[in-house]
Design a protein around this nucleic acid. Structure first.
Lengths: 211, 211
DNA sequence: AATATTATTGACCGTTTGGTCAGGTTTCTA
DNA sequence: TAGAAACCTGACCAAACGGTCAATAATATT
């Protein structure tokens, strides 16, 4: 009789398993079609569950979407907080960039999920962007600014440097289709990411060198 | 009685006007929600026309979408063909980058339209990507490779340099929401693009310098 | 083994969606 | 200015959509 709704009781074996199946399916679907373009039926099919069964575990489409975003968001933004003010500036920036690139390779769907959310105006996570994300970026931007002021890296706007890193790395997940098409029939994923790695590193290292 | 379908007759005044109204509306809607997330009703509302009237000018939702993509595609990819093999390498690359950045500012919806199409797997323009786009990129990549081989710019993979330029510039259109949130309440569009311009230019110019 | 809880589903509901169509109105053309 | 062509719309349709619910099946607890 107890609805698993407000006060979270202990999760059953089946509940934990099925909720994760649904969230996995939802990631595949939402990351491709965005919130509005996705349907519960698609998610149910992908999770190999009936639609009513999906709605037994989640209150509705939006509930799935929000929970998925929450689950993915922290993990996706985490690396930035590891940018170490006491480390070697260029090393730290390059290391962060490479971690982000690796994430785009390992979990492109997460990247596309956020890309879709941004394109649709970030209706669901606008507050997080203006809150936690902004705070974290502000903090790390001031670290980068310090490095620049000290003359340890070139004088660049720290915010736009971060944007450039985000853009460059996430591009390999979000525009995967385009990249495959342009690189042609001989496309090889590992090769592509290795080339990306050396190109980005090279431009970033030289680009940040004090003149 | 003549259906405006196969052999294109002369366009009436009203036809030209309304088709453009519809395509303008479609750009606004499709660029935000992608093909699947958008509805004809939304487009009709935005164009201030009735739904049946929209379908009087276009055969269906997909017809609007494809015509819109075709109309926008050429314009969006054009600048790359102006990359001049006989110009100064760094100048040419920076100039191209700045044109792309300017396009992201002037026509962010076009950028988001393509971003959505890519995220959804480029079902409608996959052939164009593998055809015209690939051919153009191949051509210009070989130009950049020549510059690198001659030692006029740093040795970087030309394809990934182009990806980096696309990513960095389009980011300002596609992730506009995120950028606004992170830059906070004092956000100013002109200021943002000026800072972006100098940051990207700086990193690119130094990054491409021969060591 | 009996019982309480959790899990699952077919059938269903109201709404939205892409699209059609008959018929009326406006605009063009001779 | 009359007729032809182009334009526009209310009413409609079938399918897809988000979501509900009563009833049944599986599992856990005692």
């Amino acid at each position: 009789m107890m609805k698993r709704a407000a006060a979270s009781k202990k999760k059953t074996r089946i509940q934990a398993k099925n909720e994760q199946k649904i969230l996995d399916a939802a990631l595949a679907v939402f990351s491709q079609f965005g919130f509005r373009g996705s349907t519960i039926d698609q998610i149910a099919d992908h999770a190999q569950l009936s639609k009513p069964n999906v709605l037994y575990y989640f209150r509705g489409k939006q509930d799935i979407y929000v929970r998925l975003l929450q689950q993915t968001l922290d993990h996706w933004l985490a690396p930035l907080s590891e940018l170490d003010p006491d480390g070697d500036p260029v090393d730290q920036i390059v290391k962060y960039t490479m971690i982000k690139l690796e994430m785009s390779r390992k979990n492109p769907e997460a990247s596309r999920l956020f890309a879709n959310e941004m394109l649709q105006g970030a209706a669901m996570i606008g507050d997080v962007l203006k809150g936690d994300l902004k705070a974290l970026v502000d903090e790390k931007a001031s670290v980068i600014k310090l490095w620049a002021d000290r003359g340890e890296i070139a004088k660049v706007d720290p915010y736009h440097l971060i944007f450039m890193i985000w853009a460059t790395t996430q591009h390999y997940a979000d525009f995967d289709t385009q990249i495959r098409s342009v690189l042609g029939a001989t496309y090889n994923k590992d090769r592509c990411f290795l080339d990306a790695q050396s190109t980005i590193t090279s431009i970033l290292v030289n680009g940040l060198k004090v003149q």
